[in-house]
Amino acid sequence: MNILTILLLFTALLLTRVSRLSTAVNLILAQSFMVALACAAVGIETGAVHMYIGAALTAVVKVGLIPYGLMNIVDNLQHESEDHPILNMNYSAAAACIAIVLAYSLIDKALPGAGSRDALATAVAMTLIGLLLIMTRRQAVMQIVGLITMENGIYLVGLSVTKGLPLIIELGVFFDVLVAVVVLGILTYRLKLSGISTDTSMLKKLKG
Protein backbone atom coordinates (compact mmCIF):
# COMPACT_ATOMS: atom_id res chain seq x y z
CA MET A 1 0.00 0.00 0.00
CA ASN A 2 2.90 2.39 0.71
CA ILE A 3 4.21 1.91 -2.82
CA LEU A 4 0.74 2.65 -4.22
CA THR A 5 0.47 5.87 -2.22
CA ILE A 6 3.86 7.04 -3.53
CA LEU A 7 2.89 6.24 -7.12
CA LEU A 8 -0.49 7.95 -6.73
CA LEU A 9 1.19 11.12 -5.46
CA PHE A 10 3.70 10.91 -8.31
CA THR A 11 0.96 10.71 -10.97
CA ALA A 12 -0.92 13.61 -9.35
CA LEU A 13 2.25 15.73 -9.37
CA LEU A 14 2.97 14.82 -13.00
CA LEU A 15 -0.49 16.05 -14.01
CA THR A 16 0.50 19.56 -12.90
CA ARG A 17 3.43 19.44 -15.37
CA VAL A 18 1.55 18.06 -18.37
CA SER A 19 0.46 20.12 -21.39
CA ARG A 20 -0.39 17.33 -23.86
CA LEU A 21 -3.97 16.16 -23.38
CA SER A 22 -3.25 12.56 -24.42
CA THR A 23 -0.50 12.31 -21.78
CA ALA A 24 -2.91 13.62 -19.13
CA VAL A 25 -5.51 10.99 -20.09
CA ASN A 26 -2.90 8.21 -19.90
CA LEU A 27 -1.81 9.44 -16.46
CA ILE A 28 -5.38 9.48 -15.16
CA LEU A 29 -5.82 5.95 -16.51
CA ALA A 30 -2.73 4.80 -14.58
CA GLN A 31 -3.90 6.65 -11.47
CA SER A 32 -7.36 5.06 -11.60
CA PHE A 33 -5.79 1.63 -12.10
CA MET A 34 -3.78 2.12 -8.90
CA VAL A 35 -6.96 3.19 -7.07
CA ALA A 36 -8.57 -0.06 -8.24
CA LEU A 37 -5.56 -1.98 -6.90
CA ALA A 38 -5.85 -0.15 -3.56
CA CYS A 39 -9.54 -1.05 -3.38
CA ALA A 40 -8.73 -4.70 -4.09
CA ALA A 41 -5.99 -4.61 -1.45
CA VAL A 42 -8.50 -3.39 1.15
CA GLY A 43 -10.81 -6.21 0.04
CA ILE A 44 -8.06 -8.76 0.63
CA GLU A 45 -7.29 -7.21 4.03
CA THR A 46 -10.90 -7.03 5.25
CA GLY A 47 -12.46 -9.90 3.32
CA ALA A 48 -15.34 -7.59 2.27
CA VAL A 49 -16.89 -8.77 -0.99
CA HIS A 50 -18.21 -5.32 -1.90
CA MET A 51 -14.62 -4.03 -2.04
CA TYR A 52 -13.93 -6.40 -4.93
CA ILE A 53 -17.07 -5.06 -6.62
CA GLY A 54 -15.77 -1.51 -6.05
CA ALA A 55 -12.40 -2.46 -7.54
CA ALA A 56 -14.12 -4.00 -10.57
CA LEU A 57 -16.32 -0.91 -11.05
CA THR A 58 -13.28 1.36 -10.81
CA ALA A 59 -11.50 -0.72 -13.43
CA VAL A 60 -14.48 -0.75 -15.80
CA VAL A 61 -15.55 2.89 -15.42
CA LYS A 62 -12.38 4.85 -14.63
CA VAL A 63 -9.76 2.64 -16.28
CA GLY A 64 -11.87 1.57 -19.26
CA LEU A 65 -14.87 3.68 -20.25
CA ILE A 66 -13.81 7.19 -19.20
CA PRO A 67 -10.21 7.11 -20.60
CA TYR A 68 -11.51 5.53 -23.82
CA GLY A 69 -14.06 8.31 -24.27
CA LEU A 70 -11.56 11.02 -23.37
CA MET A 71 -8.96 9.63 -25.77
CA ASN A 72 -11.51 9.67 -28.60
CA ILE A 73 -12.24 13.33 -27.81
CA VAL A 74 -8.50 14.13 -27.71
CA ASP A 75 -8.01 12.42 -31.09
CA ASN A 76 -10.73 14.63 -32.57
CA LEU A 77 -9.22 17.76 -31.03
CA GLN A 78 -5.92 17.11 -32.84
CA HIS A 79 -3.63 20.04 -31.95
CA GLU A 80 -5.38 21.27 -28.79
CA SER A 81 -3.13 21.37 -25.72
CA GLU A 82 -2.84 23.18 -22.39
CA ASP A 83 -0.51 25.96 -23.57
CA HIS A 84 -1.72 28.88 -21.45
CA PRO A 85 -2.93 27.68 -18.05
CA ILE A 86 -4.07 30.25 -15.50
CA LEU A 87 -1.18 29.11 -13.30
CA ASN A 88 1.93 28.01 -15.21
CA MET A 89 3.46 24.56 -14.85
CA ASN A 90 6.19 25.56 -12.41
CA TYR A 91 3.83 27.37 -10.05
CA SER A 92 1.29 24.55 -10.35
CA ALA A 93 3.90 21.98 -9.34
CA ALA A 94 4.99 24.20 -6.43
CA ALA A 95 1.36 24.59 -5.31
CA ALA A 96 0.90 20.81 -5.52
CA CYS A 97 3.99 20.27 -3.34
CA ILE A 98 2.59 22.76 -0.80
CA ALA A 99 -0.72 20.84 -0.85
CA ILE A 100 1.12 17.59 -0.12
CA VAL A 101 3.05 19.14 2.78
CA LEU A 102 -0.15 20.65 4.20
CA ALA A 103 -2.03 17.37 3.87
CA TYR A 104 0.68 15.39 5.66
CA SER A 105 1.13 17.97 8.42
CA LEU A 106 -2.61 18.26 9.08
CA ILE A 107 -3.18 14.50 9.10
CA ASP A 108 -0.10 13.98 11.28
CA LYS A 109 -1.52 16.38 13.88
CA ALA A 110 -5.04 14.95 13.67
CA LEU A 111 -4.05 11.26 13.63
CA PRO A 112 -0.57 10.88 15.16
CA GLY A 113 0.73 7.35 14.79
CA ALA A 114 -2.32 6.11 12.90
CA GLY A 115 -1.67 3.19 10.55
CA SER A 116 -3.65 4.73 7.70
CA ARG A 117 -2.03 8.17 8.11
CA ASP A 118 0.03 8.04 4.90
CA ALA A 119 -2.85 6.75 2.79
CA LEU A 120 -5.21 9.40 4.20
CA ALA A 121 -2.69 12.20 3.67
CA THR A 122 -2.17 11.03 0.09
CA ALA A 123 -5.92 11.00 -0.48
CA VAL A 124 -6.32 14.54 0.87
CA ALA A 125 -3.37 15.76 -1.22
CA MET A 126 -4.85 14.20 -4.37
CA THR A 127 -8.18 15.89 -3.66
CA LEU A 128 -6.45 19.27 -3.33
CA ILE A 129 -4.37 18.73 -6.48
CA GLY A 130 -7.49 17.75 -8.43
CA LEU A 131 -9.18 20.96 -7.25
CA LEU A 132 -6.05 22.89 -8.27
CA LEU A 133 -6.23 21.43 -11.80
CA ILE A 134 -9.92 22.34 -12.12
CA MET A 135 -9.22 25.92 -11.04
CA THR A 136 -6.04 26.60 -13.03
CA ARG A 137 -6.51 24.76 -16.34
CA ARG A 138 -8.37 26.24 -19.29
CA GLN A 139 -8.81 23.14 -21.46
CA ALA A 140 -12.05 21.26 -20.78
CA VAL A 141 -10.28 17.88 -20.99
CA MET A 142 -7.76 18.94 -18.33
CA GLN A 143 -10.62 20.07 -16.10
CA ILE A 144 -12.21 16.63 -16.52
CA VAL A 145 -8.87 15.07 -15.54
CA GLY A 146 -8.82 17.32 -12.47
CA LEU A 147 -12.35 16.21 -11.57
CA ILE A 148 -11.39 12.53 -11.79
CA THR A 149 -8.22 13.14 -9.73
CA MET A 150 -10.30 14.89 -7.09
CA GLU A 151 -12.84 12.04 -7.06
CA ASN A 152 -10.04 9.46 -6.79
CA GLY A 153 -8.75 11.35 -3.75
CA ILE A 154 -12.20 11.47 -2.13
CA TYR A 155 -12.66 7.76 -2.81
CA LEU A 156 -9.30 7.00 -1.18
CA VAL A 157 -10.35 9.05 1.86
CA GLY A 158 -13.27 6.66 2.26
CA LEU A 159 -10.96 3.66 1.90
CA SER A 160 -8.48 5.05 4.44
CA VAL A 161 -10.99 6.09 7.08
CA THR A 162 -13.69 3.41 6.87
CA LYS A 163 -11.87 0.54 5.08
CA GLY A 164 -14.54 0.71 2.41
CA LEU A 165 -17.77 2.62 1.94
CA PRO A 166 -21.15 0.81 1.67
CA LEU A 167 -21.77 -0.49 -1.84
CA ILE A 168 -24.77 1.79 -2.46
CA ILE A 169 -22.63 4.88 -1.78
CA GLU A 170 -19.90 3.60 -4.09
CA LEU A 171 -22.44 3.03 -6.86
CA GLY A 172 -23.80 6.55 -6.36
CA VAL A 173 -20.32 8.08 -6.56
CA PHE A 174 -19.47 6.15 -9.74
CA PHE A 175 -22.77 7.15 -11.35
CA ASP A 176 -22.28 10.84 -10.48
CA VAL A 177 -18.73 10.90 -11.85
CA LEU A 178 -19.69 9.02 -15.01
CA VAL A 179 -22.60 11.39 -15.73
CA ALA A 180 -20.39 14.46 -15.07
CA VAL A 181 -17.66 13.19 -17.38
CA VAL A 182 -20.15 12.27 -20.13
CA VAL A 183 -21.77 15.73 -19.98
CA LEU A 184 -18.39 17.51 -20.01
CA GLY A 185 -17.19 15.24 -22.81
CA ILE A 186 -20.23 16.04 -24.96
CA LEU A 187 -19.78 19.76 -24.24
CA THR A 188 -16.12 19.58 -25.28
CA TYR A 189 -16.96 17.73 -28.49
CA ARG A 190 -19.75 20.19 -29.37
CA LEU A 191 -17.43 23.13 -28.77
CA LYS A 192 -14.96 21.69 -31.24
CA LEU A 193 -17.67 20.95 -33.83
CA SER A 194 -18.85 24.55 -33.53
CA GLY A 195 -15.39 25.80 -34.40
CA ILE A 196 -14.78 27.16 -30.90
CA SER A 197 -11.63 26.28 -29.00
CA THR A 198 -12.08 23.90 -26.08
CA ASP A 199 -10.38 26.55 -23.95
CA THR A 200 -13.20 27.17 -21.46
CA SER A 201 -12.15 30.81 -20.99
CA MET A 202 -13.55 31.41 -24.49
CA LEU A 203 -17.03 30.79 -23.11
CA LYS A 204 -16.90 34.21 -21.44
CA LYS A 205 -17.49 35.71 -24.87
CA LEU A 206 -20.94 34.10 -24.93
CA LYS A 207 -22.19 36.27 -22.06
CA GLY A 208 -24.90 38.74 -23.08
Rank of each mutant, 00 (worst) to 15 (best):
C39N: 00
C39P: 00
A40Y: 01
A41Q: 09
A41V: 04
A41P: 00
V42G: 01
V42M: 08
G43L: 02
G43T: 06
G43H: 02
I44V: 09
I44A: 00
E45T: 01
G47W: 07
G47E: 06
A48H: 15
A48Y: 14
A48L: 11
V49C: 07
V49Y: 11
V49T: 15
V49I: 12
H50Y: 03
H50E: 06
M51I: 02
M51P: 04
Y52W: 08
Y52P: 00
Y52R: 01
I53S: 07
I53Y: 01
G54S: 13
A56E: 01
A56Q: 01
A56L: 14
L57D: 00
L57V: 05
A59M: 03
V60P: 05
V60K: 06
V61N: 04
V61E: 03
V63P: 00
V63W: 03
G64E: 09
G64A: 12
L65H: 03
I66Y: 03
G69V: 04
N72L: 15
N72A: 15
I73C: 13
I73N: 13
V74Y: 05
N76W: 09
L77D: 09
L77E: 12
Q78R: 14
H79K: 13
H79M: 08
E80M: 06
S81D: 08
E82N: 10
E82K: 05
D83P: 02
H84A: 15
H84Q: 14
H84Y: 09
P85W: 14
P85A: 14
N88Y: 12
N88W: 15
N88E: 13
N88Q: 04
M89S: 10
M89H: 08
M89I: 14
Y91S: 11
